Computed example of a mutant assay.
Amino acid sequence: MALSKHQIDRKFPCTIKDLRSTIHLDHTPSTSLSQALFGLLNHRRQSNIKRLSAAVTSAGASVFAKTQALDNIKSRIRVTLGKPKRSGDFDWPVEEFLNTVEANDRGANVAPLIGYGYKKSRLGLVEEFFIITHMLEGHTDGLQWLERNPTQIERLIKKSFALLRSLNESHITHMDFWAANLMLCESGDLPAKGIDLENCFHRKPHYPSETLGFQFGFFYHREIYRFVTEAQYDEWVEEALGQYENVNLENFKRFYQASKHTKIGRKERRRIFLEGVLDLS
């Protein structure tokens, strides 16, 4: 169930505005940080790019902002009215925001969310949506870390699988779980953190074994295959499965094997979670 506007307003009570842009935050920012945030949004528009993700630093405060333009009238109307698509899903930027709110509320290992915002057109329709999280200082994404430390592939795998299990136990099912969508601490032995939660569900999967098989297979398919043999990866997956209960191994293996070697689009991934179907046509 989506959060109500009242619930969202309580989480992000501070509102700042600049012309037709509005940002809602969980705290009052400094004037310089506010200016820096609006400056980033203006940069995206002037650069004429659809999506932009970047760190914003001002007066010693660092946050991470991700902004995306809504590219058609239907999505603008839906987001303005707070309505989902016919499928029941919200548009991708709103999905990411709602999933990140839920993940934070459940104490999941993800980047802490501090706000969101939007820009409206002259007609009053939302034409751009953005979310703002704490900057994960001292962290780097798993793929960059692995490129620099290819011999430490097992360490990355262990931390990644631990994060995947932690998210699944919180009923945050990440359907775009790959090395670049997790952040590793450069020093110390802290748990990894998940990012980019747009293609996620914040409820139990309808088909848990099929979904889990996809998640493990997809993780291998997205770049990990370059750093480890398939046989070794299979061994690590088998070891990780020992921490899960009631896995239907036949269904798991069918989706796992297919997902290791096949490009699966975002919509097809959602069908795995909702219908237990892998459409490779």
Rank of each mutant, 00 (worst) to 15 (best):
A240D: 13
E250F: 06
C200F: 13
Q68K: 11
R155F: 14
S160I: 03
W178P: 00
N42C: 08
A59E: 14
R86A: 07
L3P: 04
R165H: 15
S259T: 04
N72K: 12
K83C: 11
T140Q: 12
K267V: 06
K120W: 05
M183G: 01
D141V: 02
Y116N: 02
G265H: 09
F218V: 03
L70K: 06
T229I: 07
E230M: 08
K119C: 03
L249D: 11
Q35I: 04
S47R: 14
R106H: 07
H221P: 00
S281C: 01
I172C: 07
S160M: 08
L146Q: 02
I157M: 14
K17S: 12
S121C: 00
G242P: 03
A61N: 12
N42K: 13
R45E: 13
F214H: 06
K83E: 13
H171C: 12
R51H: 05
Q144G: 00
E96G: 09
L125E: 03
V110S: 05
N48L: 10
V228N: 05
E154F: 10
A162T: 12
D279L: 04
H134E: 15
A192L: 09
H6G: 08
S62V: 07
L113N: 02
Y225S: 05
G60P: 00
T28K: 14
G82L: 09
T211N: 05
G188M: 08
Q257G: 01
L278Y: 04
D196H: 07
